[in-house]
Design a protein around this nucleic acid. Structure first.
Lengths: 204, 204
DNA sequence: GGTCGTTTGTGAATGTGAGCACAAATAAAA
DNA sequence: TTTTATTTGTGCTCACATTCACAAACGACC
């Protein structure tokens, strides 16, 4: 395989593939072919093959993809073969829900710290985590935390983001609406709940 | 303007445009040109003009876009000129957070009913809403609710979806992971929180 | 060992959205 | 009224993702 630029769209599909392969691992399947996988995921088999081929030769012609090996390789590509610690900023209702969200652990994702600026919340517990002061954000690098989830009100979003980036955070999952300025070296993913919901009526 | 197919990407940007125009309305601005707007939103001015032009001639050359009129027209396109009622299914932590989410109201979106299958939760209150039994989903059509947010565990997602569609729901915001089968007449938007977060480590 | 059916990997074709350049339209100034 | 400075709307081009088609690889069976 020669080098080709890997489309962002491919990266975005990898978690879906990983989930499917993990499931098949649990079902003790040894191999799976792109056609079966395509049916499971509601995709085109060609797309699956092309996506996986970006990362080298995963499968064997006439057989398919080895379930365990492929799962491991995708985990490695996404750097999910070791637990990834994440900081959560904003201990409001959404933040609290995210701490308890059961879906992260199967991807080896862990919310390892919670911050808030409200003095009344600091020291209180969410699950097994203690809410820390926003002043302590600067210590993230030492704690080996490079990812953060932003669940603060819109007006605080930019200033918190600046602090996070100064603290060495390089990946950001942003729930606040509006534009957030980050340097090109930081990967930012936006989830604007209100915008998403407001698209639906259009199709009515 | 002759007919052109409107890209989904354009529709997805409309809420962003609407938010900006609403803000400008509040600032008592009378007009805004695509260049200013582009700076605000971090986009290309060409893109904004092209997006808006799909829906007819919004602006005036040499002047720009009339703030109030354009805001109104985008609201009308997205059918947000009247309040859109939404049903929430799943009164867990995520569901509870969504009921309290302050971002919906500015788009005229309202969570008007909450459902759960857990008998212990039924009858309890979330905000000013009373949690209803899932058996009452069938009554959604009579209540003029055509949109739903799905915040239930993965294993319940498909069966709840089927009930919702039978009850006349035609737009779905789905927070459960994995594949959800819906007929082509139903618009579905997926928000897979774990998948989104698991993309970030790749870029580290 | 040869043949046949299956499945992968990939170059090529197709489809689609983003970016661009420019003509047409407008307002303000001369 | 004419000129100048803006700004929109849009055909065109480019870039990129998806889809296709086919050669090469593989296992199974004879």
């Amino acid at each position: 395989m020669k080098y080709r630029r890997i489309p962002d769209e491919t990266i975005q599909r990898l978690p879906m593939y990983l989930r499917a392969f993990s499931l098949l691992e649990g079902e003790k399947e040894l191999t799976v072919c792109s056609r079966q996988l395509a049916v499971r995921l509601g995709l085109n088999p060609h797309q699956i093959r092309k996506d996986l081929s970006y990362f080298g030769n995963f499968g064997r012609p006439g057989v398919g993809y080895p379930v365990q090996t492929t799962a491991r390789r995708i985990r490695h590509i996404l750097k999910l073969d070791k637990t990834q610690k994440t900081a959560l900023v904003g201990a409001g209702r959404l933040g609290t829900a995210l701490v308890a969200y059961p879906g992260f652990s199967s991807f080896n994702l862990e919310i390892a710290a919670v911050f808030d600026s409200d003095p009344k919340k600091i020291g209180k517990k969410i699950g097994h985590l203690t809410i820390e002061s926003a002043a302590r954000l600067a210590g993230l690098k030492k704690r080996n935390i490079h990812l953060a989830i932003l669940a603060v009100p819109a007006d605080a979003a930019q200033s918190v983001t600046d602090k996070l980036i100064k603290a060495g955070v390089r990946g950001l999952l942003n729930f606040s609406p509006g534009r957030l300025k980050v340097p090109a070296s930081v990967k930012k993913i936006d989830i604007d709940l209100a915008s998403q919901l407001s698209i639906l009526p259009y199709y009515l």
